[in-house]
Amino acid sequence: MTDFETFLLDGRPVRFTRGQTILEAALAAGHYIPNLCHHPEFRPHGSCKLCTVKVNGRLGAACTVKAMPGQEVASDTPELNGTRRVLLQMLFVEGSHFCPGCEKSGACKLQALAYDLEMLTPHFEHFYPSRPIDASHPDVLIDFNRCIMCELCVRASREVDGKNVFALAGRGTASHVVINSASGKLVDTDFALSDKAAHVCPVGAILPKRVGFAVPIGERLYDVDSISTQAEKRVGEEV
Protein backbone atom coordinates (compact mmCIF):
# COMPACT_ATOMS: atom_id res chain seq x y z
CA MET A 1 0.00 0.00 0.00
CA THR A 2 1.25 3.49 -0.75
CA ASP A 3 0.37 6.86 0.72
CA PHE A 4 -0.28 8.21 -2.71
CA GLU A 5 -3.10 7.88 -5.13
CA THR A 6 -2.79 8.55 -8.81
CA PHE A 7 -4.73 9.74 -11.77
CA LEU A 8 -3.74 9.69 -15.41
CA LEU A 9 -2.74 12.91 -17.15
CA ASP A 10 -2.39 12.42 -20.89
CA GLY A 11 -1.73 8.79 -20.16
CA ARG A 12 0.96 9.36 -17.53
CA PRO A 13 0.27 8.57 -13.89
CA VAL A 14 0.31 11.59 -11.59
CA ARG A 15 0.48 11.21 -7.84
CA PHE A 16 -1.67 13.39 -5.69
CA THR A 17 -2.84 13.85 -2.16
CA ARG A 18 -6.51 14.11 -1.30
CA GLY A 19 -7.84 17.61 -1.56
CA GLN A 20 -5.49 18.68 -4.33
CA THR A 21 -6.98 19.93 -7.54
CA ILE A 22 -5.91 18.39 -10.82
CA LEU A 23 -3.89 21.50 -11.59
CA GLU A 24 -2.12 21.54 -8.23
CA ALA A 25 -1.25 17.88 -8.48
CA ALA A 26 -0.08 18.16 -12.07
CA LEU A 27 2.13 21.18 -11.38
CA ALA A 28 3.60 19.58 -8.27
CA ALA A 29 4.51 16.58 -10.36
CA GLY A 30 6.16 18.75 -13.00
CA HIS A 31 3.44 18.38 -15.59
CA TYR A 32 2.43 21.69 -17.01
CA ILE A 33 -1.19 22.60 -17.64
CA PRO A 34 -1.58 26.14 -19.00
CA ASN A 35 -3.10 28.47 -16.42
CA LEU A 36 -3.47 32.18 -15.87
CA CYS A 37 -5.78 33.15 -13.00
CA HIS A 38 -4.35 30.42 -10.78
CA HIS A 39 -1.94 31.31 -7.99
CA PRO A 40 -0.67 28.74 -5.49
CA GLU A 41 -1.31 31.02 -2.53
CA PHE A 42 -4.96 31.63 -3.34
CA ARG A 43 -8.12 29.62 -3.59
CA PRO A 44 -9.09 28.58 -7.09
CA HIS A 45 -10.84 31.25 -9.12
CA GLY A 46 -11.65 29.37 -12.30
CA SER A 47 -12.31 32.36 -14.51
CA CYS A 48 -9.67 32.41 -17.23
CA LYS A 49 -10.46 28.82 -18.32
CA LEU A 50 -6.97 28.34 -19.78
CA CYS A 51 -6.61 25.19 -17.69
CA THR A 52 -9.66 23.56 -19.26
CA VAL A 53 -9.09 19.81 -19.44
CA LYS A 54 -11.17 16.76 -20.16
CA VAL A 55 -11.78 14.68 -17.06
CA ASN A 56 -13.22 11.27 -17.89
CA GLY A 57 -14.60 12.83 -21.05
CA ARG A 58 -16.12 15.86 -19.31
CA LEU A 59 -14.70 19.34 -19.71
CA GLY A 60 -13.72 21.25 -16.61
CA ALA A 61 -11.21 23.76 -15.26
CA ALA A 62 -8.26 21.81 -13.83
CA CYS A 63 -7.88 24.46 -11.12
CA THR A 64 -11.32 23.71 -9.68
CA VAL A 65 -11.75 19.98 -10.24
CA LYS A 66 -10.43 17.88 -7.40
CA ALA A 67 -8.05 15.07 -8.29
CA MET A 68 -9.58 11.65 -7.79
CA PRO A 69 -8.01 8.23 -8.06
CA GLY A 70 -8.30 6.68 -11.47
CA GLN A 71 -9.38 9.84 -13.28
CA GLU A 72 -8.34 10.02 -16.88
CA VAL A 73 -7.40 13.59 -17.67
CA ALA A 74 -6.62 14.85 -21.15
CA SER A 75 -4.79 18.17 -21.35
CA ASP A 76 -2.11 18.40 -24.00
CA THR A 77 -4.31 17.64 -26.99
CA PRO A 78 -4.61 19.62 -30.23
CA GLU A 79 -8.29 20.20 -29.49
CA LEU A 80 -7.78 21.61 -25.98
CA ASN A 81 -4.74 23.63 -27.01
CA GLY A 82 -6.83 25.03 -29.85
CA THR A 83 -9.49 26.12 -27.38
CA ARG A 84 -6.82 27.67 -25.16
CA ARG A 85 -5.36 29.58 -28.08
CA VAL A 86 -8.79 31.05 -28.80
CA LEU A 87 -9.18 32.04 -25.13
CA LEU A 88 -5.83 33.84 -25.30
CA GLN A 89 -6.87 35.57 -28.51
CA MET A 90 -10.05 36.71 -26.78
CA LEU A 91 -8.03 38.23 -23.93
CA PHE A 92 -5.63 39.89 -26.37
CA VAL A 93 -8.38 41.60 -28.38
CA GLU A 94 -10.48 42.50 -25.35
CA GLY A 95 -7.78 44.58 -23.74
CA SER A 96 -4.93 46.60 -25.12
CA HIS A 97 -1.86 44.42 -25.08
CA PHE A 98 0.93 46.23 -26.82
CA CYS A 99 3.89 44.15 -25.71
CA PRO A 100 6.73 46.31 -27.07
CA GLY A 101 5.53 49.17 -24.88
CA CYS A 102 4.85 47.18 -21.73
CA GLU A 103 7.32 46.91 -18.87
CA LYS A 104 6.01 43.45 -18.08
CA SER A 105 7.02 42.08 -21.45
CA GLY A 106 9.22 39.04 -21.03
CA ALA A 107 7.79 38.36 -17.58
CA CYS A 108 4.11 38.46 -18.50
CA LYS A 109 2.13 35.29 -18.02
CA LEU A 110 -0.38 36.11 -20.74
CA GLN A 111 2.42 36.66 -23.23
CA ALA A 112 4.33 33.59 -22.07
CA LEU A 113 1.25 31.45 -22.56
CA ALA A 114 0.74 32.89 -26.02
CA TYR A 115 4.30 31.89 -26.88
CA ASP A 116 3.86 28.47 -25.39
CA LEU A 117 0.67 27.85 -27.34
CA GLU A 118 2.14 29.42 -30.48
CA MET A 119 -0.47 32.12 -30.78
CA LEU A 120 0.74 34.09 -33.79
CA THR A 121 -2.18 36.49 -34.12
CA PRO A 122 -4.98 37.81 -31.90
CA HIS A 123 -7.24 36.87 -34.80
CA PHE A 124 -10.48 38.55 -33.68
CA GLU A 125 -11.46 42.15 -34.21
CA HIS A 126 -9.89 44.28 -31.50
CA PHE A 127 -12.18 45.93 -28.95
CA TYR A 128 -9.77 48.84 -28.35
CA PRO A 129 -10.99 49.65 -24.86
CA SER A 130 -10.45 53.11 -23.50
CA ARG A 131 -10.11 52.58 -19.80
CA PRO A 132 -8.55 55.35 -17.73
CA ILE A 133 -5.08 54.81 -16.31
CA ASP A 134 -4.61 55.38 -12.59
CA ALA A 135 -1.22 57.00 -12.01
CA SER A 136 -2.30 58.70 -8.79
CA HIS A 137 -0.28 56.54 -6.43
CA PRO A 138 3.33 57.60 -5.83
CA ASP A 139 4.76 54.10 -6.22
CA VAL A 140 2.39 52.09 -8.34
CA LEU A 141 0.71 52.59 -11.70
CA ILE A 142 -2.40 50.81 -12.93
CA ASP A 143 -3.16 50.45 -16.62
CA PHE A 144 -6.64 48.95 -16.68
CA ASN A 145 -6.40 48.43 -20.43
CA ARG A 146 -4.15 45.46 -19.69
CA CYS A 147 -6.41 43.93 -17.03
CA ILE A 148 -7.64 40.39 -17.71
CA MET A 149 -10.14 40.23 -14.79
CA CYS A 150 -8.34 37.42 -12.95
CA GLU A 151 -9.04 39.18 -9.64
CA LEU A 152 -5.65 38.20 -8.22
CA CYS A 153 -5.16 41.76 -6.97
CA VAL A 154 -8.65 41.70 -5.47
CA ARG A 155 -7.91 38.43 -3.73
CA ALA A 156 -4.40 39.37 -2.58
CA SER A 157 -5.50 42.67 -1.12
CA ARG A 158 -8.40 41.06 0.71
CA GLU A 159 -6.85 37.82 1.85
CA VAL A 160 -3.19 38.65 2.37
CA ASP A 161 -2.90 42.39 2.83
CA GLY A 162 -6.14 42.70 4.77
CA LYS A 163 -6.86 45.93 2.95
CA ASN A 164 -9.58 45.27 0.44
CA VAL A 165 -8.30 47.84 -2.04
CA PHE A 166 -9.87 46.35 -5.19
CA ALA A 167 -13.20 44.95 -6.35
CA LEU A 168 -14.54 43.68 -9.64
CA ALA A 169 -17.54 45.69 -10.83
CA GLY A 170 -19.67 45.85 -13.94
CA ARG A 171 -21.04 43.05 -16.04
CA GLY A 172 -20.05 41.31 -19.25
CA THR A 173 -17.51 43.19 -21.30
CA ALA A 174 -18.11 46.19 -19.05
CA SER A 175 -16.51 44.26 -16.18
CA HIS A 176 -13.68 46.21 -14.66
CA VAL A 177 -11.66 46.49 -11.50
CA VAL A 178 -12.63 49.38 -9.23
CA ILE A 179 -10.69 50.86 -6.38
CA ASN A 180 -12.19 51.05 -2.95
CA SER A 181 -12.01 54.76 -2.28
CA ALA A 182 -14.50 57.56 -2.59
CA SER A 183 -12.46 59.15 -5.37
CA GLY A 184 -11.91 55.78 -7.03
CA LYS A 185 -8.19 56.57 -7.07
CA LEU A 186 -5.46 54.36 -5.74
CA VAL A 187 -3.76 57.22 -3.93
CA ASP A 188 -6.77 57.53 -1.65
CA THR A 189 -6.41 54.01 -0.32
CA ASP A 190 -3.88 52.53 2.07
CA PHE A 191 -2.32 50.58 -0.79
CA ALA A 192 1.46 50.25 -0.55
CA LEU A 193 4.21 48.98 -2.82
CA SER A 194 4.98 46.32 -0.23
CA ASP A 195 1.48 44.85 -0.57
CA LYS A 196 1.08 41.40 -2.01
CA ALA A 197 -1.47 42.90 -4.37
CA ALA A 198 1.21 45.11 -5.90
CA HIS A 199 3.15 42.09 -7.12
CA VAL A 200 0.59 39.50 -8.02
CA CYS A 201 -0.68 40.80 -11.37
CA PRO A 202 0.11 38.21 -14.05
CA VAL A 203 0.11 40.90 -16.75
CA GLY A 204 1.31 44.49 -16.85
CA ALA A 205 -1.79 46.09 -15.35
CA ILE A 206 -0.29 46.82 -11.92
CA LEU A 207 3.30 47.96 -12.09
CA PRO A 208 5.78 49.56 -9.73
CA LYS A 209 6.80 53.01 -10.90
CA ARG A 210 10.35 53.96 -11.87
CA VAL A 211 11.63 50.43 -12.43
CA GLY A 212 10.48 49.78 -16.00
CA PHE A 213 12.60 47.61 -18.29
CA ALA A 214 15.08 46.84 -15.51
CA VAL A 215 15.98 43.40 -16.82
CA PRO A 216 17.65 43.30 -20.23
CA ILE A 217 16.01 41.44 -23.08
CA GLY A 218 17.36 37.92 -23.10
CA GLU A 219 17.43 37.65 -19.31
CA ARG A 220 13.80 38.20 -18.46
CA LEU A 221 11.68 35.59 -16.74
CA TYR A 222 10.48 33.79 -19.83
CA ASP A 223 13.29 34.68 -22.23
CA VAL A 224 15.39 31.56 -21.71
CA ASP A 225 13.01 28.84 -20.61
CA SER A 226 9.41 28.93 -21.69
CA ILE A 227 6.66 28.96 -19.08
CA SER A 228 5.99 25.27 -19.57
CA THR A 229 9.65 24.30 -19.40
CA GLN A 230 10.01 26.22 -16.16
CA ALA A 231 7.00 24.48 -14.68
CA GLU A 232 8.40 21.13 -15.68
CA LYS A 233 11.71 21.93 -13.99
CA ARG A 234 9.95 22.96 -10.82
CA VAL A 235 8.94 19.45 -9.79
CA GLY A 236 7.99 19.11 -6.17
CA GLU A 237 7.93 22.79 -5.33
CA GLU A 238 4.70 24.37 -4.33
CA VAL A 239 3.50 25.92 -7.56
Partner: peptide
Protein backbone atom coordinates in the same frame (compact mmCIF):
# COMPACT_ATOMS: atom_id res chain seq x y z
CA UNK B 1 -26.54 39.19 -19.87
CA UNK B 2 -23.11 37.52 -19.67
CA UNK B 3 -21.88 38.10 -16.13
CA UNK B 4 -18.33 38.66 -17.36
CA UNK B 5 -16.67 36.23 -14.97
CA UNK B 6 -15.12 33.78 -17.42
CA UNK B 7 -13.19 34.56 -20.59
CA UNK B 8 -15.07 32.46 -23.16
CA UNK B 9 -18.49 33.81 -22.26
CA UNK B 10 -17.52 37.42 -21.53
CA UNK B 11 -15.57 37.90 -24.74
Amino acid sequence: ESCGFCTPCRV
